[in-house]
Amino acid sequence: MATVVTVTSGKGGVGKTTTSAAIAVGLAQAGHRTAVIDFDVGLRNLDLITGVERRVVFDFVNVISGEATLNQALIQDKRLENLSILAASQTKDKDALTEEGVGQVLDELSELGFEYIVCDSPAGIERGAIMALHFADHAVIVTNPEVSSVRDSDRILGILQSKSKRAKEGGKVYEHLLITRYDPVRVEKGEMLSKEDVCDILAVKLIGVIPESKAVLKASNTGVPVILDEDSDAGLAYSDSVARFLGEDRPMRFVTSRKQGLLSRILGGGD
């Protein structure tokens, strides 16, 4: 069976789709056949972030309702042959996602040989979000170091621990915390929650910290997932996060401000 990785947050605008695209690309780069599914029915955006918006013919809901086959709806990425994208419907409503239908699509993806299925959850705690986390083996909780985002993440953790398939069967979904839009300078000034603060409050293992970065908007402008921008701090931080997800031990980068002496910079310390 494929491993289902759900990217979720509760709150909107924290970077779920950016993260879903990055994780899917990262897993594919690591040699794993990966599919990424947009669960945000009615408000799809994963297609734009991955740059395949003009290639969407059939979508996730078409497959569930039998109007198209999975192979017709899957869009193969032009950069990575290991990666396929399944867009959400732009017209149907979120009730089109049934537990049975979603389960069938995930099973079929497994049969097609996909090793990882990344589910890009919509914001909120309605049907689309519940369906995206229902089948999760792993959940990546995307959180901004900000009060409303942290609170909503805690709410989503509660739902994962009570409503997911694994939880209902007495098991556990593996939880990973990913902090995005992190500004070390503001953290050091005491203006922003630190990564330790967020970890303390949510009690979830940290998988990565993505710094606030201009590269993220640049990436979405051009439809190239930011993880492919190897000159950017955000891209490298995402690469590290995926490596950690796959079991590698990597130190956190870009979590301290760059106010270092010249010497330590030359010696390459810090960061």
Partner: peptide, 8 residues
């Protein structure tokens, strides 16, 4: 007390 401490 910093605002981050208040938030926490």
């Amino acid at each position: 007390k910093t605002t981050a401490a208040a938030a926490k």
